[in-house]
């Protein structure tokens, strides 16, 4: 319990340091863009595949369930709204945690056990400024783009099933999709992404730089970081959804 409280305090201090550097404008943009590339490219293929499959499955289930009520023509709306409001932000955040988050945590953990973070400090450079700030900022830049990609690909996956399997005309599917998604739907999903980006970047960087215990520690802390991200994404999603529905309930 004592260790948990100390750990939480250190994590809050880390976030404070990150904000301090950002507010003071001490951001190494070349490092940020390197991280954007690494996190983005690394996650893009998995997000694309997972989203296409999710959209297709939603359309398949929609065809069966909505067919029972004679409302098969609303498959496009089901797919689009489910993806934009809920599934794409959460799925993408989970995939991002497992790929980019694990990468970040493992990389920082390895540097920590090999004294590279301490070497940075000894050379008069704060590792938070050099390693953590760029990684956390990159999360805020990459995750929204990945979610938009996920939404588009998911809708295309649903389109493919709706048109080829459910016999929905292509132009009708397009019309229904475009008219189903309002600004508030997009915003409801999008606001979550920034909460997830903060949590994933924060947890993975904190776990990474606090790693001890050699190669065994790298594995242990990386696994713990990813597991904690999964839990935090799912739990925070409940609260953010409730908040969003309270303020923009009928969207």
């Amino acid at each position: 319990m004592k260790d948990t409280i100390i750990g939480l305090g250190k994590a809050v201090c880390l976030l404070g340091d990150v904000l301090k550097y950002i507010v003071r404008g001490r951001v190494r943009w070349d490092e940020v863009f390197k991280q954007v590339y690494e996190q983005g490219v690394g996650s893009l293929i998995i997000v694309t595949l997972a989203s296409a499959a999710s959209g297709a499955v939603l359309a398949m289930q929609g065809q069966v369930m909505m067919g029972r009520f004679g409302a098969k023509e609303f498959i496009a709306q089901l797919v689009a709204l489910s993806l934009v409001r809920e599934m794409s932000p959460v799925f993408t955040a989970l995939v991002f945690s497992g790929k980019a988050g694990a990468g970040m945590a493992a990389e920082l953990a390895t540097m920590s056990v090999n004294n590279q973070l301490q070497a940075t400090r000894v050379m008069g450079v704060d590792p938070v400024e050099f390693f953590v700030v760029p990684r956390m900022l990159a999360c805020f830049l990459v995750l929204p783009v990945l979610v938009v990609v996920s939404e588009l690909v998911g809708i295309l996956g649903g389109y493919f099933i709706a048109v080829t399997q459910a016999g929905i005309p292509s132009s009708y599917y397009y019309y229904q999709t475009v008219h189903a998604i309002g600004y508030s739907d997009f915003f409801c999903g999008f606001i979550k992404i920034f909460v997830f980006a903060l949590l994933i970047g924060w947890v993975c960087c904190y776990k990474g730089i606090s790693t001890t215990g050699g190669s065994l520690g790298v594995g242990r802390f990386t696994t713990a970081a990813v597991a904690l991200c999964y839990v935090l994404v799912i739990v925070s999603n409940t609260f953010v959804t409730k908040m969003v529905l309270t303020f923009w309930g009928n969207g």
């Binding site: 590279q116 301490q118 000894v122």
Partner: peptide, 9 residues
Amino acid sequence: YLFQEGALF
């Protein structure tokens, strides 16, 4: 500071 294992990036 020369670290035991070098600590090169």
